[in-house]
């Protein structure tokens, strides 16, 4: 149930995020944006461009280069009644904030029995394919999804980036809002310019199909959509389901996809072992096993550290690997 309005504007994902930060800061003066280079530089990708000029240095703050205190200070700001929207410049850098995100932010409500609301939205770009240096590209959603108390949100379109980010900022729980840096400028679509909220826990059908369902999230939605188009020409009708949020998880839509198609491929960019695809497959096992006509296939990165530039295209799943997996599960190849 997505709120829609009449006025649409074509934006790329970065523009949608920037537009939403402007709108949310304008709507609620408690919202504060802070992190490395978010102020005068407008963010290394320009996601926070113009915020400092418009809202001032009290609300848009360039911090020292210290991810632990960027995350940790958000806890105190929340307790002071603010709505913190910190940025971790790249998700790989969140290792240096993991103890605050996992050990503190995620359990603040639980350990204080809700004395404090935790309306923290941590924005962080991630994902490969753009030749970043080491530790910029790691897909760590599954690690965080294993930590109760966090919500894990991964938009795959500009419209969803707006609708999900606005929902995240207004949510009284901590949200990890993970932005696919490969899609920042590549992904463009029509974004409602007025109020637009996308609720958490409601997956989006990106392509309708009846033979095979691809279940995925974030930038892999874009690749899966391209794969689905190619496979249509081969006579395979492919449904693409974008989970949008891993926590909370839309189990109903997963079950429906399995019941519709009977054959499923789960695509993730993270390494295979313990990726969130494993959780999706276990959920299918629990809730829809008897609707399956073939074992679920999964397409993943490999169980290697995220590689350097000349190897990364072999690591990140691409359209060919997704197509191969769909053909396998459809019984067209062995």
């Amino acid at each position: 149930m997505t709120t829609t309005t009449e006025t649409l504007q074509t934006m790329n994902m970065l523009e949608a995020i920037n537009h939403t930060l402007h709108a949310e800061m304008g709507r609620d003066e408690r919202v504060m944006v802070f992190g490395e280079d978010v102020g005068i530089n407008g963010g290394v990708f320009r996601a926070t461009e113009g915020l400092l000029d418009r809202f001032g240095s009290e609300r848009v703050v360039d911090t020292p280069l210290a991810e632990g205190v960027i995350a940790g200070a958000a806890v105190g700001l929340a307790a002071a009644g603010m709505v913190p929207v910190p940025e971790i410049q790249f998700l790989g850098f969140s290792y240096q904030a993991f103890h605050q995100i996992a050990g503190q932010i995620a359990r603040l409500r639980y350990r204080t029995r809700s004395r404090f609301d935790v309306p923290i939205t941590i924005r962080s770009p991630f994902g490969g394919g753009v030749r970043t240096p080491e530790l910029h590209s790691e897909s760590l959603a599954a690690q965080y999804a294993n930590i109760p108390g966090l919500k894990i949100v991964l938009p795959s379109s500009a419209a969803d980036a707006k609708g999900l980010l606005a929902t995240a900022i207004r949510d009284p729980n901590p949200v990890l809002f993970l932005e696919p840096l490969r899609g920042y400028r590549m992904i463009k679509d029509d974004v409602p310019t007025d109020e637009h909220l996308v609720p958490f826990g409601q997956a989006r059908t990106v392509a309708e199909g009846s033979d095979v369902a691809i279940i995925t999230w974030s930038f892999q939605v874009e690749l899966s959509r391209r794969a689905a188009k190619l496979l249509t020409d081969e006579g395979i009708s492919v449904k693409v389901l974008d989970l949008r949020t891993l926590v909370p998880l839309d189990t109903e839509s997963i079950v429906e996809a399995v019941e519709t198609c009977g054959r499923v491929v789960v695509v993730q960019e993270a390494p295979e072992t313990n990726g969130f695809a494993s959780e999706v497959i276990a959920t299918i096992n629990d809730e829809a096993f008897y609707s399956l006509e073939a074992p679920v296939q999964r397409v993943s990165g490999y169980d290697t550290p995220y590689p350097v530039g000349m190897l990364e295209d072999f690591f990140v799943p691409d359209v060919d690997r997704i197509c191969d997996a769909v053909r396998r599960v459809a019984g067209m190849v062995t």
Binding site: M32, E58, R59, G68, V69, A71, G72, A73, A74, V75, G76, L77, A78, A79, A80, G81, M82, P84, H99, Q100, G103, Q104, R111, T112
Partner: peptide, 24 residues
Amino acid sequence: WPPQISLATQVPHAVGLAWGMKRA
């Protein structure tokens, strides 16, 4: 605040709280 077991993690919280109080 309640006891903090993870050593020194409460110091960033205190700084954030003081920062928020100052802004408010």
